[in-house]
Amino acid sequence: MKVRSVIPDIEVTDIEAARSFYQDFLGLGEEEFNLGWVARFTEPESRAAVQVVTEDETGPANPVLSLKVDDIDAAYAEAKASGFDIVRPLTGEGWGVTRFFVRDPDGNIINITAHRVTEDGE
């Protein structure tokens, strides 16, 4: 498994209220996506990013960190083989990612995620 990016997940009560802080003040001006309960703000040049989350819509808890990986199946198999606490099993989501939640040794919930590649390479 190779980690492609690490994105902090910050719990907020209102994504719209958080927008001016993360976009205007911190300069994370590009809103990559907004699902209503999670949004990602990114600095266009460096691609530094932060996700803000109100309440994970499909998971049992809010993660503190999202890791994009190149091989989600290998990551899941390795997490299980290592005996880590799988908080949410490997699941395909309607917005095009497959992910699972795993608890680190200190109890933090980590969202391991990858975009699925279709047969035509997209």
Rank of each mutant, 00 (worst) to 15 (best):
I10S: 05
F100D: 09
D71E: 04
E43S: 13
D106E: 09
A114R: 00
T113L: 02
D9G: 15
P8D: 07
L90G: 01
V50H: 04
A77G: 02
R47D: 14
T118Y: 14
H115W: 15
L67T: 02
F41I: 11
R99L: 13
E30M: 11
P60N: 14
G94Y: 06
V97P: 01
N108C: 14
F84Y: 14
T113A: 13
S82V: 07
E78I: 04
E57R: 15
T58C: 14
G94S: 04
A81D: 11
I10K: 08
P8C: 06
F25V: 10
G107H: 05
A75E: 02
V38N: 13
G27K: 07
R40I: 06
D104F: 08
I72N: 05
I72V: 08
Y76K: 11
R4Y: 13
D24A: 09
T13S: 08
T91D: 05
T91V: 04
D56P: 07
G83A: 05
R47P: 08
D14N: 04
T98L: 01
R4K: 13
F101I: 06
E78F: 03
F101M: 07
V97W: 06
V3K: 00
S46F: 07
T118W: 12
N62V: 11
W37H: 01
G29A: 13
I15Q: 02
G94Q: 08
R88V: 14
D24P: 08
F33M: 08
R88D: 07
W37A: 01
S5K: 02
E30N: 06
V52D: 02
E55R: 10
K80S: 02
E30W: 11
S82M: 10
R40G: 15
E122V: 13
A74E: 02
Q23S: 07
W37Q: 04
I7H: 03
E43N: 12
